[in-house]
Each structure stands twice: as C-alpha cells, then as structure tokens.
Amino acid sequence: MTAIHNPSTLGASDNIPDNSYAFCIDLTAPWFIRKGAMIAYYGQMQFQALTHGLHGAALHMVANQFSAPLYMGDYAVAEGFGKLIIGDRGYDINSYDLDDGNLTIRASNLLAFEPGLALNQSIVPGFLTLIGTGKFLASSNGPVMFAEPPLRIDPEALVGWADCPSPSHHYDQGWISNFLAAGAHMMGINSGEERQFDFTGAGTVLIQSSEKVLSDTHVVRSIEGQIHGITPTGLQRLNGVIAAKLAEQPR
C-alpha cells in the first residue's frame, strides 16, 4: 500500500521515504530555492524572488551570499517554518554537505542551498560554484557516482567537481585528424565521444549515470551574456555555426 505522509512521518531533512525523486526540507531557517522546485509544503512559508521585493534579513543574505547575477531570476528565498517538499521533473535528488569546501556544479542540477554557502558564477559556462559550509540539494539523471582524478569523462555526464582544478577539454586523435582534414570546419562530428573533460589533481568529480544534460538554458544564457563583447566578424561566424547546427537537426 502506498504510504500517506504528514509532517510527523517526514521527519528531518531527507528524501521522501522510498522516493529518490522528492526531498523534504525541514525548514527552520531561510534557504535559497530554485523557482519551480517547490511541489508542496506544510506550515507557514513565503517565497521571495531575488529580483524584487526583498527586505531586511533576506536582502542582507542575498547581498552577501549570492554573487551570480545571470542566475538572480532563477532563485527565491524560502522563509518560515514547516516541511518543504521539492522535486525536479522526476529526476533523482540528493543532498550534499560542504564543510568549509568548494564545489562547482552544473547550474541546471542545483535545486537549493543553505545561506551558509556562497554562490558564485564559475568561469566554466553553465556552472556555479558553492563555497563555505552548509547543505545543498542537486538533481541528476540517475544516481550520482563519485570519482577521483585523474580521469576523463563525457561532458554531458558531468554534474560537478569539488576541491580540484577546473577541467580542460581533451579531443581524441581521430577528432583532431577530421578537424584538420576538414580545413578547420567543426561541423559533422556528432557522437560526443571525441570530446571529454580532463580532470587532474586532487579532489572529487560527481558523475551522473547518463549522458543526458537536464537543461542547456544556463549555457545559452551565459553565451548571451558575452554577446556584447563579440565583434561583427565574430557574430557572423557564430551565426554560421548556429545555422549549421540547426540544419543538422531532424525535421
């Protein structure tokens, strides 16, 4: 029989019993929550968007802990008390604890975090960096694996990395040969296996159990944020690349 939940059965912050797709936050202090993640709650709560209407402690918290202007519109501050249940389109959700740590995560995977953590934009497009001490919640397409560098992984399988340098791109010999043979024309190789992220040094890499990126919205937004610095020649080249990619899509 399907379990019927209430505040007493949900207990402390954890996944809903026997359900890896939903997480219950025992809200006693403010959290940063990605818009759209809340699916239900017990108690008294309010959700304030970061882009307007903030005041008092919430405004101070955002000013000190949220340094990612491209993502201001994606998050709200959840305040009050009770049981806050969140989900993400049926993807697995896990909680992670940082202790004076440094973790970079794909923006589309980050769902919520405590204000003991500061959020910064990563230099890697589409990724965010959490610094400090506290708990955060992230979704993934399948269970998450933890691996030590040195290793190479498929970019689409990457969830994030902790306490190690940012990755570099690695292209295999076959891709380079095709790239040169095509006269530096980058179209026509679509498997994804020719390009990997190369991690070196100490630390931990988080890898989801599939090659499906949850969303590319944040990468697109990062590119849009850099358009103003591109010359007309660069814009024409970018337009050509986009047109070629669109032509490859099935009709």
Rank of each mutant, 00 (worst) to 15 (best):
M1Y: 14
I4F: 07
N6H: 13
L10V: 09
P17Y: 08
D18M: 15
S20W: 03
I25R: 03
D26C: 13
P30S: 08
W31Q: 14
K35G: 13
G36T: 05
H52F: 12
H55T: 14
M61Q: 11
Q65C: 15
S67G: 00
P69M: 05
L70C: 07
G73K: 02
Y75P: 00
E79V: 15
G80A: 11
G82H: 05
I86M: 04
G87H: 13
I93C: 04
N94I: 04
D97I: 09
G101W: 09
I105D: 02
A112Q: 02
E114H: 15
E114R: 10
P115M: 01
Q121T: 13
L130F: 03
I131S: 03
G132R: 06
G134Q: 08
G134H: 05
K135R: 13
S139I: 06
S139E: 01
S140V: 06
E148R: 14
E148F: 05
L151Q: 11
L151T: 06
A157K: 01
W161D: 08
Y171R: 06
Q173K: 11
G174I: 09
N178H: 13
G183I: 00
G183M: 03
A184W: 11
E194G: 10
A202M: 07
G203M: 02
L206A: 12
S210C: 11
V213A: 12
V219H: 10
V220E: 14
S222W: 12
E224I: 05
E224D: 06
I230E: 10
T233A: 13
R237S: 15
N239L: 10
A243V: 14
A247N: 15
